[in-house]
Amino acid sequence: MIINNLKLIREKKKISQSELAALLESSRQTINGIEKNKYNPSLQLALKIAYYLNTPLEDIFQWQ
């Protein structure tokens, strides 16, 4: 199971779900699903999230 700190990191950087979704060329619903652990992002999307949040991938997503 993958757990994530996306919501915590996103809020700390003062970025809304909609703003992050626009940067990622994704939907706000996708970001919401990832944050609620209802959806696991593809590797490509996970890497883009890490890039746009300027945060190491392993700080956002962790195996448990």
Results as ranks from 00 to 15, higher is better:
55 T>V: 12
26 S>D: 08
29 Q>H: 13
47 L>P: 00
55 T>P: 04
3 I>E: 07
27 S>T: 14
30 T>I: 15
37 N>V: 01
27 S>Y: 03
31 I>N: 02
36 K>F: 06
53 L>S: 01
3 I>N: 07
22 A>R: 14
36 K>M: 15
38 K>C: 14
8 L>C: 15
48 K>A: 09
60 I>Y: 03
55 T>Q: 04
20 L>S: 06
63 W>F: 08
29 Q>L: 10
43 L>W: 11
15 I>P: 01
42 S>H: 06
57 L>R: 01
17 Q>W: 06
3 I>F: 09
37 N>A: 08
55 T>H: 07
45 L>W: 02
33 G>P: 01
56 P>Q: 08
20 L>M: 05
3 I>R: 10
19 E>F: 09
45 L>S: 01
23 L>N: 08
51 Y>V: 07
14 K>T: 05
40 N>E: 14
35 E>K: 02
18 S>C: 12
14 K>V: 05
6 L>T: 02
43 L>I: 12
59 D>G: 09
64 Q>Y: 10
3 I>K: 13
2 I>R: 09
32 N>T: 08
27 S>F: 04
6 L>M: 10
11 E>R: 08
36 K>L: 14
14 K>Q: 12
8 L>M: 13
42 S>Q: 05
8 L>R: 13
9 I>S: 01
7 K>R: 12
19 E>R: 14
30 T>D: 07
62 Q>I: 11
15 I>Y: 08
61 F>V: 02
54 N>Q: 14
43 L>F: 12
51 Y>G: 06
52 Y>R: 04
55 T>K: 03
22 A>G: 11
18 S>R: 13
46 A>R: 05
38 K>Q: 14
4 N>K: 00
58 E>F: 11
56 P>S: 07
46 A>G: 08
51 Y>I: 08
28 R>F: 09
60 I>G: 03
48 K>H: 05
13 K>Y: 09
16 S>D: 04
34 I>E: 01
56 P>G: 05
30 T>A: 08
7 K>Y: 05
51 Y>P: 00
35 E>A: 03
18 S>M: 12
27 S>R: 08
1 M>W: 06
16 S>K: 08
11 E>S: 08
3 I>C: 12
41 P>V: 10
57 L>G: 02
31 I>M: 02
3 I>Y: 08
18 S>D: 14
29 Q>S: 13
62 Q>S: 08
48 K>Q: 11
6 L>Q: 01
33 G>L: 15
32 N>D: 15
